[in-house]
Nucleic acid binder design. Structure first.
Lengths: 180, 180
DNA sequence: CTCAAACTGATACCGAGTGTCACGTTAGCC
DNA sequence: GGCTAACGTGACACTCGGTATCAGTTTGAG
């Protein structure tokens, strides 16, 4: 149900533009009521970005699974492979979604917010790797920078219409900031 | 006028909570109409965050003014001094605003967005320093990371109730990512 | 003094999100 | 098989932020 709703919504958004489509439009097209749509998604934006959430835990888990003696930056680089997995698995869909998001301020803002929400989990994971309870300034900075690398890499990948290699882009992004 | 409106709004927000105060409340307290408030700010959030904008150009200008042979990371670190200037000039006010923002999801989101909007100017400045027209992946990443350092530094400064030295926090944040 | 431009406030409107409630369906249980 | 409790659904009313329009007023330049 949720998935079908999201699909109908995405289709409408892409065809008519995100803010030319009301929640009522989506609900009607999907054959449900406005109430139902809002119970499933809570927000118009979430119909597009719901898949984006909960990747946070997977990346954090991957980070925790890295060898303890590995430096933060390398560990983060590898953990980010789990973030780009969905892009590699379904490039066309990922491209379509990314284009819609980039062209819609409201979606961009919400995505930025969701991405930002990953930071605590990553910083915490780094802190645990270091054996400390609370993340240090360095942990927060590195976690944030790693997310930027992901973001910048994906942006360039989208700009190239998926032509460039996302893995190489990520490597390039991470290389721009040598760890210590 | 704008400044007084912002002051009245801020006062109300801090006392009753941002989302317990409607635009009408602010307008009434300031003795103007809702229309006028919205013409000045366009958004409820902007009444608090308007000062935050337009720092982008100053920082970018500072970045361009750095010696051409200086490495990006050092240049960014120095440029960021202009971003924290207002915090050093009026620490109490900056602290009060920062606390309100941190405690209000809507304000946090909007601030994040405004911060994100600095990136193009910084990345472009880095590109010009390098003699290229368009920023490279490395430029984007470094610009973004520098903003994170600023953000993380300020966050910790607020957590310490202004007790810690913001300059040292910034140094520490930048040191967490060695440049190349 | 005049006239144009800018400022203001009133009004109407749209759409997102919240809360509530009644109805129907389903599923467990005796 | 019938009873009931839980849940999904939809209808409705409401609040509030933001947009657009327009008429009245102020202001300032010539």
């Amino acid at each position: 149900m949720r998935a079908e709703l999201a699909l109908v919504a995405f289709d409408l958004f892409r065809r008519k533009g995100f803010d030319k489509v009301t929640i009522d439009d989506v609900a009607e097209a999907a054959g449900v009521s406005r109430s139902t749509f809002l119970r499933y998604f809570g927000t118009k934006e979430d119909a597009v970005l719901s898949a984006f959430e909960s990747k946070s835990e997977r990346v954090a888990a991957a980070l925790r699974a890295r060898p303890a003696d590995e430096d933060d930056w390398t560990a983060l680089r590898h953990a980010m492979d789990h973030a780009i997995a969905s892009y590699a698995d379904a490039p066309d869909e990922a491209l379509a979604v990314a284009r819609l998001v980039r062209g819609t301020p409201a979606l961009r803002a919400r995505q930025l917010e969701k991405m930002h929400a990953w930071r605590p989990a990553l910083a915490q994971a780094l802190a645990e790797r270091a054996g400390t309870g609370t993340p240090s300034v360095a942990h927060w900075v590195r976690a944030s920078a790693a997310l930027d690398c992901f973001s910048v890499g994906v942006d360039h990948w989208v700009d190239s219409d998926g032509g460039l290699d996302l893995i190489e882009l990520l490597d390039e992004a991470f290389a721009a900031l040598a760890p210590r």
